[in-house]
Amino acid sequence: MNDSNIAIEVKELSKIFKSGLKGGEVQALSEVSLKVDKGDIFGLLGPNGAGKTTLVKVLLGALHATKGSASVYGLDVRNANSRNKAGFLPENHRFPDYMTGAQMLKVYGGMSGLSSGEIKARSKDLLEIVGMSKWRDMKIKKYSKGMKQRLGLAQALINDPEIIFLDEPTDGVDPVGRREIRDILKRLKEQGKTVFLNSHLLAEVEAVCDKVAILDKGKLIKTGPVSELTRVSSTYQIETIQLPIEAAEQIKTAFPHAKLLTDNKISITFEDPRQLNSLIDILRKLNVEITAAIPVKISLEDSFMQLLRGEVKHG
């Protein structure tokens, strides 16, 4: 991969938090290395306390790495300029609630170096996109959680960033809002923006992300394309109108791992996909009417759980 195509590069990054006067230590990140390509929607997954937010905070300069290095768009994260092209929506944010939504965008736009003319134009568009135009002049203290989240997204996009870090962006947002946020992310991808998404909502990550990394106890246990983790398995679910006892016995003899789910449904994992034809032959010989042969897809959630339980080899 050409280096100019890399949006984020993390090399053997470790973060240790010192706690208490007795010198206790908590290893939040342990030698994490990963690369995120420009234009990708990259999902960072992991259970609570896995180190996801720590990694994002290191990338944005809010935390200092204990060991290793990280860069955003080729600039070391210790350099404030590495955040020139970045936008960020933190988890559990606390916006200045004494301001209105429009005033807040003015502040964070200005801090990103935008002129007041640019802020005015961007704010108008973004508040429209996130559905907050109506409430632009209302004090933030009167906003609901979902409204704050939408405003936060507008704030993260105010400087037209090349890379957007979103930490649990759909937290507190209703299903309609979630769908809208998902659409915004897809639109950002179409514009060639890179999105770094921290989320524990696996279905959401599966729906929008190109690649994911899974963190557990500060260690990176898997990284790769979503398609690799949500592959179609060699397990099929066969549905019939009625499965006679004779057919069930013959199937059991031919495929000892077959599981009879109901009196018309059977689940079989094939060692060779061509074995599906043999099964169909057996059923047809016995005049069993097949209504469906469905390949069982492994969801991201299944893969995630398997990885955390150590059922799948890390890599």
Partner: peptide, 14 residues
Amino acid sequence: SKGRVELALAKPIS
């Protein structure tokens, strides 16, 4: 305060 300082630190300002 937590949740607010991150917003400022994430901006391109030392």
